[in-house]
Amino acid sequence: MDTFCQYSRLFVLEASAKDFVLALGEHIHIRTQLGDGRKITRPFTPVMIEAEDGIVRPHLFIRLYEDNEQSEYFRKLEAGARLMVRGPVTTNENLSRVFGGELCVLIAGGSGIAPIFQALQFAHINEKYYLQRIILIHCARDSSGLWLEKNISEFSQEMPQLSYHKFLSRETKDDVITSNTIVGQRLCLDSLKRVLLLNKGMAPCKRRALVCGPGTFNGDVTLWLGNMEFDDVQAL
Rank of each mutant, 00 (worst) to 15 (best):
A81H: 08
L77E: 05
E78F: 01
D19V: 11
L136A: 10
A114Y: 00
R42N: 12
L60I: 06
T181A: 10
V85R: 05
T172D: 13
M159N: 05
G35S: 14
F74T: 02
S96P: 00
I107G: 01
D53A: 07
R133G: 02
I182Q: 10
E154G: 04
F99N: 04
T32M: 11
N227H: 11
A235W: 00
V221E: 01
T45S: 08
T91V: 07
H27Y: 14
C205R: 14
G112R: 01
L13C: 11
M159F: 04
Y129H: 15
T41I: 15
K18P: 03
K166V: 10
V98T: 09
E69F: 03
G87A: 10
K200M: 04
V21A: 12
K173T: 11
T222K: 13
L22N: 03
R57P: 00
K150T: 12
A17N: 10
F61Q: 03
D142H: 12
L136P: 01
G80V: 08
T91M: 10
G219E: 13
A79K: 11
L236P: 00
E158K: 14
V12Q: 09
K206V: 14
L83F: 11
M1P: 03
V21L: 09
S169Q: 08
D142Y: 08
V12G: 02
L60V: 06
C212N: 04
N218W: 00
R82P: 00
R208T: 11
S96M: 07
P46W: 02
C139V: 09
F74W: 11
E72Q: 13
K173E: 14
K193Q: 06
T3V: 15
F217L: 06
S179P: 03
L189H: 12
L10E: 14
D220N: 11
P204L: 10
Q157E: 15
Q157D: 12
N126R: 15
S179D: 14
L64I: 06
I40N: 13
K150A: 13
